[in-house]
């Protein structure tokens, strides 16, 4: 007799994690050197995301050009096969996806030093191959990594994470089963600070519990930032040692 217990009395979640454990986080950068100026591939739990950054480059239409700063565009391609159930129709013009794209643009517009790339356009192309909850957080992480790989100047990392609230227990880094069972809060945290670039709550949550959930989310986001930083430094170290063996 097996029941699907979101949070067992022993403190274990459906996938065996504890309330404050992140899912498996694997990332690599410069995965598509031919297709883009900067690229990253990351897996957060079962989320598999390819992020390509093309730019700074000349805009296709001169009329779109801004003489004082670069223009940032984000396109998110949620594939039809990303979820367990294949989607019948394309998500390209869905309002939910447009909202995600706008949020991502507005987040990184404040983080990337656009004013040092005037008259150019930076295109960010994202392909979601598989999603299993907390997708917004993973999109943010993928973009941060790809922008760094592209060598585009920015002020700090932005790390994304989602936290759910199951009755009174906060659960860090929710997967899709958990997202369907409770309200989740998605945060985009700037570097090691407590400043939020993104705060997204889409389902009801008691006002008095929100602060605690935010605190746990920020701590989780800091850990994600450290994981990304570790991977980036490892990659840089490899590139430096490859370049200097001669």
């Amino acid at each position: 007799m097996s029941r699907l217990e979101i949070y067992s009395p022993e403190g274990l979640r459906l996938d065996g994690r504890r309330w404050n454990e992140l899912r498996r986080f694997e990332s690599s950068i410069n995965t598509h050197p031919h297709a883009a100026d900067g690229s990253s591939y990351m897996e957060q739990g079962n989320n598999k995301i390819i992020t390509l950054v093309k730019g700074p480059k000349e805009p296709r239409l001169k009329s779109q050009m801004d003489t004082s700063k670069a223009l940032l565009n984000v396109s998110v391609n949620i594939t039809k096969f990303s979820k367990f159930e294949r989607s019948k129709s394309s998500h390209k013009n869905e309002r939910r996806v447009l909202e995600i794209q706008t949020s991502l643009v507005r987040m990184f517009e404040k983080n990337v030093m656009l004013n040092i790339y005037p008259r150019t356009v930076i295109d960010i192309e994202i392909h979601v191959l598989e999603q299993d909850g907390g997708i917004m957080g993973s999109l943010i992480n993928g973009i941060t990594l790809a922008l760094i790989d592209a060598g585009i100047s920015m002020f700090d990392y932005i790390s994304g994470i989602s936290v759910g609230l199951y009755d009174t227990t906060p659960l860090l880094d929710t997967n899709s089963l958990e997202e369907n069972a409770m309200s989740t809060v998605t945060l985009g945290v700037v570097g090691k600070s407590e400043k939020l670039s993104l705060l997204l709550v889409e389902d009801k949550i008691p006002l008095d519990r929100l602060e605690n959930v935010l605190a746990i989310g920020i701590a989780g986001a800091h850990r994600v930032r450290d994981l990304m930083d570790e991977e980036l430094r490892k990659h840089a170290q490899k590139r430096v040692s490859n370049a200097s063996v001669r």
Partner: peptide
């Protein structure tokens, strides 16, 4: 006393405690 939704879709990064104060 339920927060129905919160949307800070990018824009100026703000301290989390300030955002909580805003909610209150």
């Amino acid at each position: 006393r339920e927060v129905v939704q919160v949307s800070k879709a990018g824009g100026l990064p703000m301290d989390a405690l300030t955002l909580m104060k805003c909610c209150h």
